[in-house]
């Protein structure tokens, strides 16, 4: 039986080479990771609700916070309304992606919505849910649901209810604009209020199928972060 001849590389050199390689390998993987992280995660800027006074809800006195959002059918309409955002795709979008709300507060949200619309896939989301009284104000009028075929988008907050955090569910159907109104840059103003529980992480997304053409119209804009979905953080203090 032949025995292997000895290698000409010394043990010390080998060790140095191996450790250098390990460091390099870890560095490469981390670089890839952080690149991916920086091009994707939380690049969205946060929108903080402003607290202004208190409100009485069912006998309890809560902080009253205010936050606003807009929905535009495309970049051009947004720019016409002095919102400067350039998207990768010519898709409708919500202007604020990551809302930060105070815990145990009454949050009043104002949405200006500029888009046209059509029919929902699931009619349930034509109801106003999870707000105080389960109603919202559309251009000043109190409404508890829309016709399922007159919706432009929905603003729906939900999350992981199994976690230790309180559950938070809000669904706001947004009334569509007619084509004529859209021509003139018209919009509806939707106002609603809901009560937050303790601190927690949630998401919001749109339940109106606004992803053109593809199956169930949930492709394109609906399938990618940054347009029709985002996060909601409820924070203490």
């Amino acid at each position: 039986m032949e025995t292997p001849t000895q290698s000409e590389v010394s043990g010390g050199k080998r060790l140095v080479s191996a450790i250098a390689f390990l460091v390099l390998g870890v560095a490469v993987v981390s670089t890839v990771g952080f690149t991916l992280h920086s091009v994707s995660a939380d690049s969205q800027k946060k929108s903080y609700a402003t607290v202004n006074g208190t409100a009485d809800v069912n006998g309890a006195t809560l902080k009253h916070a205010f936050v606003s959002e807009s929905v535009f059918p495309d970049d051009a309409t947004a720019r016409a309304n002095h919102v400067n955002r350039t998207n990768t795709h010519p898709w409708p979008f919500y202007t604020e992606e990551h809302l930060v709300l105070p815990a145990h507060s009454l949050v009043t949200m104002t949405l200006k919505v500029y888009d046209g619309g059509e029919k929902l896939n699931t009619n349930y989301f034509a109801k106003v849910l999870g707000t105080v009284d389960n109603t919202m104000l559309v251009d000043g009028q109190q409404v508890s649901s829309l016709a399922p075929d007159a919706v432009q988008h929905t603003f729906t907050i939900h999350g992981l209810p199994t976690s230790t955090q309180d559950s938070l569910f809000v669904n706001i159907p947004l009334p569509k604009m007619s084509d004529a109104e859209m021509e003139k840059n018209g919009f509806h103003t939707v106002v609603f209020s809901f009560v937050t529980g303790g601190a927690g992480e949630y998401v919001w997304n749109c339940e109106y199928p606004c992803g053109d053409g593809t199956y169930a119209k949930f492709g394109a804009v609906m399938g990618q972060n940054g347009y029709m979905s985002g996060k909601v953080s409820v924070v203490n203090g």
């Binding site: 939900h158 999350g159 992981l160 199994t162 569910f169 949930f218 609906m222 990618q224 972060n225 979905s229």
Partner: peptide, 19 residues
Amino acid sequence: IDVKCAELCGLYHAYMETN
């Protein structure tokens, strides 16, 4: 009870939970 979705269904599959 926790109601979850056990089939990958796109963007927010992870959040397709309700109580």
